[in-house]
Simulated assay, not measured.
Amino acid sequence: MQNFQRIRWFILLVLLQVLVLNYVHINQYATPLFYIYFILKFNSDIGRKSLMLWAFAIGLCVDIFSNTPGINAAASVLLAFCRPLLLRNQLLRGMSDIFEPGISAMGVHSFLRYTFTGVFIHVTTVNILDAFSFIHLKPLLLSIVTDTAMTLFCIMCVDTIRRKK
Score class of each variant (00 low, 15 high):
L137H: 07
L19I: 06
V20T: 08
L53A: 11
S96I: 11
C61S: 15
S76E: 08
F4H: 07
Y35G: 03
M95D: 07
G94E: 02
I103H: 03
A55Y: 00
L152W: 06
L60F: 15
N43S: 15
L112P: 02
V123F: 04
M150D: 05
G107D: 03
T151G: 05
P139D: 10
I64E: 06
I98H: 07
G102D: 05
V20H: 03
L15F: 14
A105D: 09
T160Q: 11
L140C: 08
H122F: 15
C61N: 04
V20E: 03
H136S: 14
I71L: 10
V126Q: 05
K49V: 10
T160I: 10
N3R: 13
T115S: 15
C157E: 02
T115Q: 09
I46S: 09
L112K: 01
V158K: 06
I71Q: 05
K138A: 12
T68C: 06
I7R: 10
G94I: 04
K164T: 11
I161D: 05
M1P: 08
K138Q: 12
I36V: 12
K49M: 10
S104E: 14
R88G: 13
A73D: 05
S104T: 13
M95Q: 15
N89H: 11
L16F: 10
A131H: 13
Y114W: 09
I121T: 07
A57P: 07
L78R: 07
N67Q: 13
L91E: 15
Q5G: 12
V14D: 04
A30D: 00
H25E: 10
G70A: 10
P32K: 00
R113P: 05
F81K: 10
M1W: 10
I36Y: 01
V20F: 13
L112D: 00
L85P: 02
W54A: 14
K49T: 12
W9G: 09
L51R: 02
A73Y: 03
V126R: 04
F42P: 00
L87Q: 11
W9F: 12
Y37H: 11
A57W: 07
L78D: 07
Y23R: 13
L60M: 12
G118V: 01
N22W: 08
G102F: 05
R113V: 14
C157I: 15
Y29N: 07
P139M: 08
F132Q: 12
D63E: 06
L13Q: 07
N89F: 14
